[in-house]
Design a protein around this nucleic acid. Structure first.
Length: 388
RNA sequence: GCGGCCAUCGUUCAAUGGUAGGACUACGGGUUGUGGUCCCGUUAACUUGGGUUCAAUUCCCAAUGGUCGCC
């Protein structure tokens, strides 16, 4: 349940309660695929203002294994993160390991069937079979606070026929996840006596209006028709299958089609997004949660977000720019990265020094850049949590 | 001193009697539910002087520089 504190048009500001703590919405999840945000310690993440992070079911299942993480006391204790964790179901890997253009050069093979999906481990080539039930089982073992259903994220472009077939299977998988999740949670009353994890479904349907609407309708039907248990619908609704290469205008349309259909008091999660201006747009249309590799990956590749002015006025059409710190023009630039930023990097290090670190490939480069970019995103979310 | 081998982007290594290619560097761009320090693009070279040939970076001679061996 999302506690909505204030509203401004479609925009909502509130709090989301999870087993490992309450999170202010709207929020951004830094990505810790394999149990670590690349380059950062959990303490540093906390200092940047992060309240919740994302881990990945598929990766943690393969290494070190969900049983081991469970034995360690859950992912939070294993990695020394004392806040909530959302786990992605492994559904995205159906897409990202299939050799599409977003993930170039990947030679991984997958086999999709009604039962589930077969992946080959990109490291040792071993075959692994993921099903909706297994995904839930793994996420429960990991100690996840927010569990995602296994879905298929179809590529773009995608025919209407395939998108329909795919979304319908995603719906059937969601129903299986729902049933299995509530059965397991009901069974282990002791473990969940202080609250259970949240379970989110994922709306698909590619760029087709009637398919998106039908996906949402089908999923809205599942929660309430399930038998027994404490079920009362989904704990949250995710919009998946966006930012996979479709025209930018489409993402906006999809939000406009789907968001009005969703219950007010449940969080909405736009998966995999996005650029700063996309987050602003989506929050203003009623989205509460985001995750994206952009701030962390771009940081490792020397691309930094810089506020346009000290006031950080996100109402401005262009409120930031992104700079490539390896550009020659920064060679003798002894100014700080971003005067408007209060992060550790921006307090202490010059552009010229950071450029140097990147050009000689010192690991500190990626660290300092990651600290800054994540701080930029967290500051952006803080601004979005304000209502004037 | 004598003999052999070599000389090509900034570096390193190819190929070729007719438009000289890669890797690294440099420069610029990209990255949207993360395997990856990743991906894409641009700039950039035939040591010099003769000779053979329609045409030489390529074949021949010499110079210069380098390298290996011998004295």
């Amino acid at each position: 349940m999302l506690e909505i504190l204030r509203k401004d048009g479609k925009k909502r500001v509130g709090k989301l309660k999870t087993v490992h703590g309450t999170v202010n919405t709207p929020f951004f999840l830094p990505i810790a695929t394999k149990g670590a945000v690349k380059n950062l310690s959990p303490e540093e993440l906390r200092d940047l203002g992060a309240e919740i992070i994302l881990g990945n079911t598929y990766h943690l299942w393969l290494r070190p294994g969900h049983k081991l993480v469970e034995k360690a006391g859950g992912l939070q204790r294993f990695m020394n993160w004392d806040g909530p964790v959302l786990t992605d179901s492994g559904g995205y890997q159906v897409f990202s390991l299939a050799g599409n253009k977003i993930n170039r050069g990947n030679t991984g093979k997958i086999k999709l069937s009604e039962e589930g999906v077969e992946f080959s481990d990109p490291i040792d080539g071993k075959k692994n079979f993921m099903t909706p039930e297994r995904s839930i089982e793994i996420q429960l073992a990991l100690g996840s606070d927010i569990i995602m259903v296994l879905d298929e994220c179809p590529p773009y472009p995608c025919s209407r026929e395939y998108a329909k077939k795919s979304l319908e299977r995603t719906t059937r998988w969601a129903a299986r996840c729902f049933g299995y999740f509530h059965k397991k949670v009901a069974k282990d009353k002791k473990k969940y006596k202080n609250g259970r994890p949240l379970l989110f479904c994922i709306i698909q349907g590619s760029v087709y209006k009637n398919l998106r609407i039908s996906s949402a309708k089908q999923l809205l039907g599942i929660g309430f028709s399930a038998q027994g248990g404490p079920a009362s619908g989904w704990d949250g609704y995710a919009i998946g299958g966006v930012a996979v290469g479709e025209p930018r205008e489409k993402m906006r349309e999809i939000l406009e089609w789907v968001l009005p259909m969703l219950p007010e008091n449940r969080p909405r999660y736009l998966m995999g997004l996005g650029r700063p201006e996309e987050l602003v747009f989506a929050v203003n249309h009623g989205v509460d949660m985001f995750d994206c590799v952009i701030p962390t990956r771009n940081a490792r590749h020397a691309s930094l977000f810089v506020w346009k002015d000290k006031k950080k006025n996100i109402k401005n059409k262009v409120f930031y720019k992104s700079i490539n710190i390896t550009n020659e023009k920064f060679k003798k630039d002894f100014s700080l990265i971003d005067k408007a930023c209060k992060c550790y990097t921006c307090q202490k290090y010059t552009r010229a020094y950071l450029r140097h670190l990147f050009s000689v490939r010192e690991p500190l480069a990626g660290r300092l850049a990651t600290i800054h970019n994540l701080k930029f995103y967290q500051d952006l979310m803080k601004l979005l949590q304000k209502i004037n």
